Computed example of a mutant assay.
Amino acid sequence: MKVLVVGGAGYIGSQMVKQLTHAGDSVVVLDNLSTGFRELARYCELVVGDLADPLLLERLFRKHDFDGVMHFAAHSLVGESMQDPGKYYRNNVSNTLNLLEAMVRHDVKYFIFSSTAATFGEPEYVPIDEVHSQRPINPYGASKLMVERMLQDFHTAHGLSSVSLRYFNACGADPEGEIGECHDPETHLIPLILQAASGRRKSITVFGRDYPTEDGTCIRDYIHIEDLCSAHAQALEALILGHKQGALAFNLGNGKGYSVQQVIEAVQLVVAEDGCNLMIEEGERRPGDPAKLVADASLAKRELGWQPQYADLETIVRHAWAWEKQRASLVK
């Protein structure tokens, strides 16, 4: 296959590119490098540019005969989306529309969308399946839901088939140590804890220990980026081979969830082998933090044949710790 990966120089996108190229596919990456890194796009042709530029998209689609498109280029900070919603609707919605219209003009029929479980809003029940109501509570989730709706309309009007994949927390690092998280600012729990262990951060704060969970801390669903990318690859293959068509959506996750305390204990176990420890501070609950967010991924397993290979928390932490040690040595 020849695949355009938009946002392929970022954390998830670069791992996707590595997986595709190692499977023998030809990949072109489009990334404006606002949050991506040139050095992560090492397995492919990199086009530095923005979805806001229709002329660039036109040149790109004229030059390459793409079989499909994968889209990872979104703003994704919930708090920022509340403060600057226009930024999120402009990039996540308007720019995606530019991409879809370019696909239609050049008869590219298959689209894989990196969506989010934030489209569901406050959970009515857990684990969350695909029939759960979608009532996003922030502009980030709302922008992703708007794209999912656009994909339904583009299938009806233009025959564009798509799969939207919704998940909560991408985590871990490339098992071979080449790719991992390097966000600025970092907002994800596992890398934050690991930065505290490596000395790049003073401490880690637990926001609330009085939730209605077994140990009192919030429970979240974590999915290794390697497993996340394998789901994207299987979804694209299902579309191209004709096994699936329409505007489909699947939830991804481990189906179990781990508490903040369990993540801390897993990190402590792993980093102790290197003589590192953690400073933990206690904080108040943050407004809007649900006690438990877990995805039901049984439909993706049944329909796509997807099966996570790295669902074990300790394995996830070990891969992320190997990456963090590299990062810590580079910044010292």
Rank of each mutant, 00 (worst) to 15 (best):
V5S: 13
G7T: 13
A9T: 14
A9P: 08
G13I: 11
L20Y: 10
T21I: 00
H22D: 14
S26E: 14
V27M: 03
V27H: 05
D31A: 08
T35I: 05
L40F: 12
A41H: 05
L46F: 07
V47I: 15
V47R: 12
A52V: 04
R59T: 15
R62Q: 13
G68M: 09
V69N: 08
Q83T: 04
V93N: 03
V93R: 03
T96H: 00
L97Y: 11
A102E: 08
H106K: 08
H106I: 06
Y110W: 04
F113M: 02
S114G: 01
A118Q: 07
G121L: 11
E122R: 15
V126T: 12
I128D: 04
S133H: 11
Q134H: 13
K144V: 08
M146P: 00
V147L: 09
V147C: 10
E148T: 02
A157V: 15
N169Q: 09
A170H: 13
C171N: 09
G172T: 11
G172Y: 06
P175F: 08
E176I: 06
E186V: 10
P191Q: 12
P191V: 13
S198E: 06
R200A: 09
R201N: 04
S203M: 01
S203L: 06
V206Y: 02
T213F: 08
E214V: 15
D221Q: 04
Y222F: 08
I223D: 01
E226L: 09
L228S: 07
C229W: 00
A233R: 15
A235N: 08
L236Y: 01
E237F: 05
A238P: 01
H243S: 11
H243P: 00
A249H: 05
G255C: 07
G255W: 07
G255P: 02
Y258C: 03
S259A: 14
A266D: 05
V270N: 04
E273R: 14
E282F: 00
P290Y: 11
K292F: 09
K292H: 05
L293K: 12
A295Q: 02
A297R: 11
S298K: 09
A300S: 01
K301F: 02
W306Q: 02
E314P: 01
V317P: 09
V317D: 09
R318F: 11
H319W: 06
A322H: 12
K325S: 06
K332Y: 11
